[in-house]
């Protein structure tokens, strides 16, 4: 009988805890949602690349598109110049949904070198990645003069995360 009463106390304590204030919101938004995700994910046929695409979202997909293009074009040493995120935020107003990855993360995703407009290696950039609401564009930078013009255009937008 006492064991039964203590069992009731256990259930009551758990019920109260799971429904107390913010715990209720958190529990349904996180662990319960994660459980639903599990039920879907356990039957998923996604491969590793698919899981990465799903998890990292649009920016990862864009990065991998860049990699595919570089492979198709057989570019030996591609160096991708990213537009500053402050440009996306202040001018195009698409940040943070669309944003340029930092070079370290871009390298992790693709194995390709990326640079900011203020990077020490910016002089090596041979492609410019441009993103907008309309889509993405990879523009080849053919000579230092063109690169200089590109950098001058983005001068008032400092690189940021």
């Amino acid at each position: 009988m006492k064991g039964f009463l203590l069992m009731l106390v256990s259930f009551a304590a758990i019920f109260i805890l799971l429904n107390a204030g913010y715990y209720k919101e958190w529990f349904s938004a996180k662990p319960v949602q994660y459980w639903s995700d599990f039920l879907k994910e356990k039957d998923d046929t996604l491969d590793q690349a698919g899981i990465l695409r799903q998890r990292y979202g649009v920016v990862y997909t864009i990065c991998m598109r860049v990699k595919d293009v570089m492979i198709q074009k057989k570019i030996a040493h591609p160096v991708i110049l990213f537009e500053p995120n402050s440009f996306y935020r202040d001018s195009l107003h698409i940040y943070p949904n669309i944003h340029a990855p930092e070079p370290a993360v871009f390298y992790y995703y693709t194995g390709l070198q990326g640079v900011w407009t203020n990077s020490p290696d910016v002089g090596k950039a041979n492609f410019l990645l441009m993103m907008s609401k309309k889509g993405i564009k990879l523009q080849e930078i053919k000579d230092p003069r063109q690169l200089k013009l590109v950098l001058a255009f983005y001068k008032k937008y400092p690189p940021s995360l």
């Binding site: 070079p103 370290a104 390298y107 992790y108 900011w116 990077s119 020490p120 995360l161």
Partner: peptide, 24 residues
């Protein structure tokens, strides 16, 4: 990222350190 490239290049001091690491 260092671990991923260590996996491929067999060293912790790998090509990741050639990337622009200004922001991190």
């Amino acid at each position: 990222a260092i671990a991923e490239y260590a996996f491929r290049e067999h060293t912790l001091i790998n090509s990741f350190f050639k990337v622009d690491l200004w922001s991190t």
